[in-house]
Amino acid sequence: MKLKNLALATVLLGGVLLSATTLDAHEGNIHKKQSKRTKQNKYAGWYMRTRVSAVTADGTVYEHNTAGVFGELVDSKKRKDRHDISAFGPATLQVVFPHYDWGEDESGDYWSDYRKYNKFRAKEREVWTFQIKNQKDVNLANADIKIALDDAKILHYNKKNGNIEYVETGVDTEMKNRFTLVDVDNNETYSIDELENAGLTMEGKHTRTFRWVKGKVKSKDYKPLELPE
């Protein structure tokens, strides 16, 4: 006990640097925490992350680091569930899934949008609507934006004390090729390969609306998002 206190005090008195909280450290911890797949693991679904960056005229790059996550999980629902994470506060730049169709209590923007995984419907068409929002501090209305999609992370799960614990067990490098980006504001579509040179901008706006479409794009995918007055 004394040794531990002494060690603690040594670190403390040596000065605790308030250094940057790095997302690399966060990701590293995920892997540390979720690296084991056992024979008991069962397939649990997948997720992907939408990466968005905005570049201003002076070359400054803005990114939001944890939002834009979507996928399918065995314990999720089509409507709001515990894996749909609410957006928190305004941001210079963030990627949100707008769900003003989830009733008064759950209506709002979300940083993740998970749906129920069903292996019998795994190849069916799905659509996720997302928005890029610039809400404070820096005006990004004239910024160039780049949208990218990370490879799908494959998930298995364990049951522990009645809880489902998800484990990342691999990467599906092909899945994202089944997605098309729909620029709802401009009635344009882009394949994954076209995104790098799509030349997208915020077009003088503080909110831009897009859809990820898995499978065939239909005319209704171009319809503007209906938001409350």
């Binding site: 966060h26 995920i30 979720q34 680091n65 894996h83 994470i85 210079t92 963030q94 820096v138 998800y166």
Partner: peptide
């Protein structure tokens, strides 16, 4: 540049930290 808040949720894939 600052962009806002970051979420950490140990029960949701993609949000460890």
């Amino acid at each position: 540049p600052v962009t806002g808040y970051t979420a950490i949720d140990p029960s949701t894939p993609g949000f460890g930290g």
